[in-house]
Simulated assay, not measured.
Amino acid sequence: MKAKFKFENLMVWQKAMDLGDDILFLSEKFPAKENFNLSSQSCRAADSIALNISEGSIGQSNPEQKRFIGSAIRSLAEVVTCLHKAKRRNYIAVDEFNCHYKQAFSLMNKLIAYKNSIK
């Protein structure tokens, strides 16, 4: 499989894919009562990051591409809030929170740099 979509080569997309998987696995630790609340919201927000990056990279003008990256950034902020809620509700340990928070912070910096690089 040699052909690739442009976004598949983007480090921010690859990191967003990793975060989406990590949040999915993390949310499986939440209690069943959160299946349709915090678990679902965490996963949808995390998946939205990569989805917006890919959608913005296909045939979009630069302002449109920046808008999609902005949406990815807002989804990432939502993921961070979900992490805080999970920690406050004692669904995840502090070290798990710190690990995922660091991952999210790194991705946020990469997304902002990528958005700023779009002319």
Score class of each variant (00 low, 15 high):
1 M>V: 14
2 K>V: 04
4 K>Q: 12
5 F>K: 04
5 F>Q: 05
9 N>Q: 02
10 L>N: 01
11 M>R: 15
13 W>V: 05
13 W>F: 03
14 Q>L: 14
16 A>N: 15
16 A>L: 14
16 A>E: 15
16 A>S: 15
18 D>W: 02
18 D>H: 04
20 G>T: 04
25 F>D: 12
26 L>R: 02
27 S>I: 01
29 K>R: 12
30 F>D: 09
31 P>R: 14
31 P>V: 09
31 P>M: 13
33 K>R: 04
34 E>S: 09
37 N>H: 02
37 N>D: 06
38 L>P: 05
42 S>V: 06
44 R>M: 10
44 R>Q: 08
51 L>C: 10
51 L>T: 11
52 N>G: 06
55 E>C: 01
55 E>S: 03
56 G>L: 14
57 S>K: 00
63 P>H: 09
63 P>D: 03
68 F>L: 03
69 I>S: 00
70 G>T: 00
71 S>N: 10
71 S>E: 05
72 A>I: 14
72 A>K: 01
73 I>T: 09
75 S>D: 14
77 A>H: 13
79 V>A: 04
80 V>L: 07
82 C>P: 04
83 L>N: 04
84 H>E: 15
86 A>F: 09
87 K>W: 08
90 N>E: 14
90 N>G: 02
90 N>D: 12
91 Y>V: 06
93 A>C: 06
93 A>W: 02
96 E>Y: 00
97 F>A: 01
97 F>I: 01
97 F>M: 02
98 N>F: 10
99 C>D: 09
100 H>P: 07
101 Y>D: 12
101 Y>E: 11
101 Y>G: 08
104 A>W: 10
104 A>T: 13
104 A>G: 14
108 M>R: 13
108 M>I: 13
110 K>Y: 03
111 L>Q: 04
112 I>C: 13
112 I>R: 14
115 K>E: 11
115 K>V: 05
117 S>I: 03
118 I>G: 08
